[in-house]
Design a protein around this nucleic acid. Sequence first.
DNA 1: AAGGGCTTACTAAGTACTTAGTAAGTGTGC
DNA 2: GCACACTTACTAAGTACTTAGTAAGCCCTT
Lengths: 219, 219
Amino acid sequence: MMSESTPNGERQPRAGKSLKAQQRRQEILRIAMDTFAARGYNNASLQEIADRAGVTQAGVLHYFRSKAQLLTSVLDLRDATDIEQLGPDRPRGLAFLRHLVDTVRRNTEREGIVRLYAVLSAESVTEGHPAQDYFRDRYTGLRTFVTDALAEACELGETRPDLDLEDAANAIIAVMDGLQIQWLLAPDSVDMAASTERAINALLGGLADKPDQQRSEAL
Amino acid sequence: MMSESTPNGERQPRAGKSLKAQQRRQEILRIAMDTFAARGYNNASLQEIADRAGVTQAGVLHYFRSKAQLLTSVLDLRDATDIEQLGPDRPRGLAFLRHLVDTVRRNTEREGIVRLYAVLSAESVTEGHPAQDYFRDRYTGLRTFVTDALAEACELGETRPDLDLEDAANAIIAVMDGLQIQWLLAPDSVDMAASTERAINALLGGLADKPDQQRSEAL
DNA sequence: AAGGGCTTACTAAGTACTTAGTAAGTGTGC
DNA sequence: GCACACTTACTAAGTACTTAGTAAGCCCTT
């Protein structure tokens, strides 16, 4: 189990002493996640979250000193791709990419989380959004993970810091994100896992058989 | 030149008689676009748009009968990918895919439009968002366009309604959308055009040399 | 060519409501 | 008896949208 300390710098108001309070806090967090997922950050209100949790608006602010801090707490709570919590003995190379596809497949059963990250990541690019740093860091981390995995999978050796590799990594991350929005709007028209797998395979193929700069002159 | 009639069903308040009024209307539209792009729909206010346009809030509502209708008018105004306005003699097959990449490249110089579509498409999946229908339709159309182009590019003949083809098309659309968010958060870490081109090439290669169901067992 | 009647293009002021956040108080359990 | 976990009561600011009014212009008849 994960310890309770949030990596988040802002201090919480004194909360979490009694067991009941800790449970309440957790419950508010869960409900806030659902609400932010369904309505976005700006359109969700503390009032609505409080109502759903069965407390007053001020009750929510007893546990989280501001709406923005509630959001960052929700985001710290768990990661949509489960990558960061894999730990140091995480899978490498091909196995990592397979893990990505598995995560996408599992996400088909977790619409709430998909919604949360799809909506908030895009909303975060607006002026002064409180989750901007979170997502910037998140993408930086993901980029490194995927780039490394690609290099390992192709057994290129880590000698050359390959720009093509980064482009491919970005494309893989992008395809996962982009599919989420399409899937949320029209679940029956999109097979997230199949499309992701196909894209990763294709990109991997393109990288593998190209030590010389000849190929891929299709366009 | 495009005619002034909006495909949008809702009738506007009687507006646009005099030339000056038409210009004012256009100006409000332009400013609304910027504002929605910078702040999202929910967080943008009529007041802010009005202030920037140098009229009162009610002045804006003279031209657009509601905030929601202002948004749909903005979206009707122009399409980010320029696809719909290609007309019936649009490029086909490979040429169409090349056009997609060109559009992405051009978008690097139009951050406002990228922002508008990236933010709003994700925001639109939230409960009761006024742009939901717009984006649902938009993706449906895009899917058809790209699927057709892929089929033409591979010269598969349109005999079999290929599921793989749809998956690949969705992946291509997704990669373009997903890259936008990454690019908006960290422009220096993302080469939208290069990543898009690489992904399309890779997916195209994967489709071309696979009439039998053997290949792509990498994962 | 002047004036009546109508429309357009707004503004100022308000309605009715929601927002995040605060300050002070209350009841309960240790 | 006192700290914790809240609630009640509130504020100040903002929200979309309405209402009522006005200045200016256009068109048609006389």
